[in-house]
Nucleic acid binder design. Structure first.
Lengths: 173, 173
DNA sequence: ATGAAGTGATTAGGGGCCATACTAAATGTC
DNA sequence: GACATTTAGTATGGCCCCTAATCACTTCAT
């Protein structure tokens, strides 16, 4: 898949096929962002697989680091923005590899505490230089000012995402 | 998960933890783009589920439309940028719903042809107005000039993605 | 204090994506 | 023509993510 698909022409063609009054450029922005996200997501998985991690597992470990090594599963779910069920799965994998361990909570009998092990901390320490180095390299094509512009525009697009999922007025159904 | 996480401070903190010489803003761009991609991906799945489709299945149907209704599975894999195995799965689901059908190829005994059915074409026609309308709405916060800037910057970032997966020199392993 | 409601975590089941390994058919080589 | 290589498609098994259902514990109301 070439990296600049679809083109503006393709978008315009798809829209015209049904005679819609939609701006092809706007659709192009949406579609390219989706494509970029998917492509980046896959690359990130490849990237993390070098360290025996996945993107989700890395993010969990990083969240644990930020919380000084301890956190409840539901706290992790909130921070990571995934469901508690997903966190259960991530913890399972990390626990099997000894990067994390589960302890029952002292205060709340329902709750558990996920603890970053020494091995988990070491893994994070080892991968950090290459990880951040590669991220920086990826973004290297943009100068600082362009990065600021990009962050601004991206943030505004993200705030528009609810337009995809919002319910519309009932009579439209 | 709030929509502007992590912050620049958080990124800087994670980098400083290991004393790395990396630009926090560059890391922030990478991480925000990843987060945006993931978030958009989920929203898109919700969006398409309203029409009984997934993002992958929609894209396959759209590719079929662009090719006048017929295409081979491997051609679809190329166009969609996914593996042939994934295409097999997508076709399976679409065929069960009668939106697509499989025909053996006349020219090549190994090959198959995926055909968009009348029902598949109707489904696409029905969802088009709302689909493109919502996409346009999502991007509505950016004016045309900003969209152009965004597409430019995004394109350059996408071209940087290989930095994540590229092999480095052998002695570093 | 006891029953109801809420919350934390897990399990089960699904979809999407992948890589790998296989079958069948086509093509190239000698 | 016979054999090896390449190519098309698929089945399998894995990971990530989800929702829904379940279980255990806590908290709240009466």
């Amino acid at each position: 898949m070439p990296e600049d698909t679809p083109t503006l022409d393709q978008a315009a063609y798809q829209i015209r096929r049904y005679g819609l009054d939609v701006d092809p450029q706007a659709v192009l922005v949406a579609v390219r962002l989706m494509a970029a996200g998917a492509r980046l997501g896959q690359a990130v998985e490849v990237h993390f697989s070098r360290f025996g991690l996945s993107a989700g597992r890395y993010r969990l470990l990083a969240a644990l680091e930020d919380a000084d090594g301890e956190m409840s599963p539901s706290g992790l779910a909130d921070v990571l923005g995934v469901s508690r069920a997903t966190v259960t799965g991530l913890i399972g994998g990390l626990e099997r590899e000894g990067l994390v361990l589960r302890r029952p909570s002292a205060e709340d009998g329902r709750s558990a505490v996920v603890v970053l092990t020494a091995r988990g901390a070491r893994r994070m320490r080892e991968l950090a230089p290459e990880h951040f180095g590669r991220l920086q390299e990826m973004v290297g094509a943009l100068d600082p000012e362009e990065r600021t512009v990009f962050l601004n525009l991206l943030g505004r697009l993200v705030r528009g995402i609810p337009a995809l999922t919002r319910e519309r007025s009932a009579r439209e159904e």
